[in-house]
Design a protein around this nucleic acid. Structure first.
Length: 787
DNA sequence: TTTAGAGGT
């Protein structure tokens, strides 16, 4: 297996064993980062209304051949909601925004929390002349033939999270007064029939795109998927990229594709430009502005021929004020030796000195800590100490808040403390920084750290460690105190420490394995991935590692071009190694596709489907029930058993989960993913016929079948294997690192001749997770088989 | 003996 090593041979060629990958022309460099925000809350009401208000008319001072008042009003709308809309900070900017986009292709809009940009901007734009659907002639690629196609008509608004996409769509459809009911599939809405809805959304497992949809909210990943089918985004007149400051891998890739569309040859869109609105919650936008501006650097390489968009598509910038109460920030005078002690002192000083409520409402406390362990420790101490308080001091109710908590427990943290004369204290991870808003908070305590995942390409492993937060993160945390009234923020670190913090967090693309990003590019026709425009290009070494890995998986050929296997892999919404396992499982040599899908569905459903049990009692309580799921082959076969038994359960699946302390949310999600993967396998010919519907009687996989399943997973994960050493440690086959089997694994504390693990994380130790027992011989075979 | 947070036709 050592033969599969990389050798640099000359400039642009990589050799792996006897194979050669061309890296022709893979070279570019680029510039820096950002912070974030949530949408306004929904309200109630129905009835029709004119969009063009009197206020609106006043702003019509611009040079305009077609007077604004002739613009067709929206289908309907709600007068009460209109009043609320008119009070939003962004409302007064609508003519300005329209004016800019009439002339320019790119607008960078910075609006702080509560400015209303996510809901209003698409409504300002959809009736613009440039936003109408047009029939144009385009040349078919390859052939000289022209075909007539529709271009434009819709506005897409991307969101990093599903919940944001769906709630914004509901809100905007209510404001517009049109229903959000259609179940029609994407973009198939034919003209002719009367419009049935103005607003739609598209997220995984949930699509509502009524006929006549003009405004479509979708997740970033969903638009990337659409790009696979429609590289010119012909359905759209404009793309609004919201929350770009969160800098997910998906939004970075999307930005690259949008940049290529706006700076490149527009022949694929029949010469019709695509308008792009980039929205960010932070004022630190120089990098984004530079990235999207055409004049900037080398725009030359992208389009090989055809007319080039030039001066007319420069980036316009607009800043909208937000709605935020002032927050008084204080730092500690000296570095604190013990964070937990300082946290307790701060909380109890606040609690005893500050009023329980005022004219703005509740005065609750939100503390940011790094993780579950720290939160639970602090909770114990606070509750203990609270018990000793005098009776004239208000009571305390502590709510932990972290991602692994059940939905119900998370929900509790959002409710006001029920008992009278009681203050709510929420101890949260950075889940409360962006993903959720806790109402009632007026005091924030910030420990100044958070756990950060970092991928190390050289080791092929990731780490999860507590690191100092960035300035923008600190500002964001403080801002959580000023949502409902003037607030206070107590930072448990000095001002000098604050000054040393990084301005922004490194974007995800620099902290994660770029394997998926590279495959995404390759599948969308990017030959030279190093020349693909990215705001923060990953290190060349990480890209090379990913290319080699993709080559090993069979997704790329010797020239670095995507293979038929690679094209099939991207059809499945799982990471490349899992996609490779799915393809292998469909192969006649293995024929265990349904089993592989069951396992992959469990693994990709979220965090572990088995809830972690802290106490010895809890463990004993469910041990018997869980035992029937355990397989000595390891975690993968255990997941398979869990899924098979869960799917076989006919009575009450939630109760079945509760009895085994399993995550019901994730099991439901796993079943969704299983259904989706089965459907895709069927559609793409990996399955001959639809599997029988649930519930099916449970039958445990016999050992020979289990062996097939594990060999099949080795096709995707041969790199993640380790051998047992005489001293009982495991050493990885590639790289020779010592790994320990994670305590959550069923193989923890056991000795097997070799293990395969799907995850490799450094926390307290170098841990192997999702572990299975394999034979050394299978590992060798997997390497020899070229995977 | 252990666990930041998002996300996909």
């Amino acid at each position: 297996m050592a033969k599969k090593r990389k050798h640099e041979t000359g400039g642009n060629v990589l050799k792996i064993g006897n194979k050669t990958i061309s890296l022709e022309g893979y070279l570019t460099k680029k510039p820096k980062k950002e912070s974030e925000n949530p949408p306004p809350p929904p309200t109630e009401s129905p009835t029709p209304v004119e969009e063009t208000s009197a206020e609106n008319q006043k702003l019509l001072k611009r040079n305009d051949e077609t007077p604004r008042k002739t613009r067709k009003p929206p289908v309907g709308g709600d007068p009460q909601l209109l009043k609320i809309r008119q009070a939003l900070p962004i409302w007064g900017y609508q003519e300005k925004i329209r004016g800019i986009l009439e002339e320019k292709d790119v607008l960078l809009l910075v609006g702080e929390t509560g400015s209303g940009k996510s809901t209003q901007v698409p409504q300002f734009l959809f009736q613009e002349k440039w936003c109408q659907k047009r029939k144009v002639k385009v040349k078919q690629p390859g052939m000289g033939k022209e075909e007539e196609v529709n271009v434009g008509g819709m506005i897409a608004i991307t969101q990093p999270r599903r919940v944001a996409a769906t709630t914004l769509a509901h809100r905007v459809s209510k404001e517009a007064g049109t229903p959000l009911t259609g179940q029609s599939s994407d973009g198939k809405s034919k003209g002719g029939s009367p419009p049935k809805g103005l607003v739609g959304y598209s997220v995984r497992f949930d699509h509502r795109v009524p006929q006549g949809t003009r405004i479509k909210f979708l997740t970033e990943g969903m638009l990337l998927q659409e790009l696979l089918r429609d590289p010119h985004l012909r359905q759209y007149s404009a793309i609004v990229v919201d929350e770009i400051h969160e800098r997910s891998v998906d939004v970075d890739l999307l930005s690259g594709f949008l940049k290529q569309i706006i700076t490149g040859d527009k022949a694929g869109r029949g010469g019709i430009p695509l308008k792009v609105v980039i929205m960010s919650a932070t004022a630190n936008i120089e990098k984004i502005r530079k990235f999207f501006s055409v004049e900037g650097e080398e725009q030359a390489q992208t389009a090989p021929s055809g007319p080039k968009a030039s001066s007319e598509s420069s980036v316009e910038f607009l800043q909208i004020e937000g709605r935020q109460f002032p927050v008084e920030i204080s730092h500690t005078p000296k570095p604190v030796p013990d964070i937990q002690e300082e946290l307790l002192k701060t909380i109890f000083r606040l609690h005893t000195e500050e009023p329980l409520q005022d004219k703005h409402g509740k005065n609750d406390i939100l503390a940011f800590l790094t993780g579950q362990e720290e939160i639970e420790g602090a909770q114990r101490l606070i509750e203990e100490y609270a018990g000793t308080l005098a009776s004239n001091v208000p009571k305390i109710k502590v709510f932990p808040l972290f991602g692994q908590l059940s939905i119900e427990a998370q929900h509790d943290a959002f409710q006001p403390a029920k008992a009278p004369f009681t203050r709510k204290i929420v101890l949260a991870t950075n889940i409360a920084e962006t993903s959720v808003t806790v109402p009632g908070v007026r005091y924030v305590v910030d420990c100044g750290k958070s756990k950060v995942k970092q991928y190390r390409a050289r080791l092929g492993m990731e780490s999860l460690l507590a690191k100092p937060i960035s300035k923008s993160s600190a500002v964001q945390r403080a801002g959580r105190a000023g949502r409902e009234g003037p607030g206070k923020c107590f930072r448990l670190y000095t001002e000098e420490t604050y000054d040393t913090l990084q301005q922004t967090d490194p974007p995800e693309i620099l902290r994660t394995d770029v394997l998926g990003a590279i495959l995404t590019m390759k599948a969308r026709g990017i030959e030279d991935v190093l020349a693909f425009p990215l705001m923060d290009p990953p290190e060349v070494e990480s890209v090379e590692k990913a290319l080699i890995h993709l080559h090993m998986l069979g997704a790329l050929d010797n020239h670095g071009n995507i293979t038929e296997t690679g094209r099939k892999m991207v059809l499945f919404p799982v990471t490349a190694p899992y996609a490779r396992v799915i393809l292998a499982a469909a192969d006649l040599r293995y024929s265990c596709l349904l089993e592989a899908i069951d396992i992959i569905a469990c693994i990709t459903a979220g965090d572990d489907i088995f809830l972690q049990l802290r106490s010895e009692e809890a463990r004993e309580e469910v041990e018997e029930a869980r035992k029937e799921l355990w397989r000595r082959e390891g975690d993968l076969l255990t997941y398979l058993t869990a899924m098979q038994r869960y799917a076989a359960e006919n009575a009450d699946r939630a109760a079945w989960c509760r009895a085994r302390k399993m995550n019901t949310r994730n099991m439901r999600q796993a079943l969704n993913i299983r259904k989706q993967l089965r459907g895709l396998a069927l559609r793409h010919g990996l399955l001959a016929e639809a599997p029988p519907a649930d519930p099916q009687p449970f039958a445990p996989a016999p050992p020979d079948r289990a062996e097939l399943v594990l060999k099949c997973f080795l096709r995707g994960f041969a790199l993640k294997t380790a051998m047992l050493m005489p001293d009982s440690s495991y050493v990885t086959a590639v790289g020779k690192h010592v790994v320990a089997v994670h305590p959550a694994s069923v193989l923890h504390g056991q000795k097997k001749e070799a293990i395969m693990f799907l995850e490799h994380v450094y926390t307290q130790k170098n841990y192997a997770k999702k572990v299975s027992a394999v034979q050394a011989e299978w590992v060798a075979q997997a390497f020899e088989g070229g995977l």
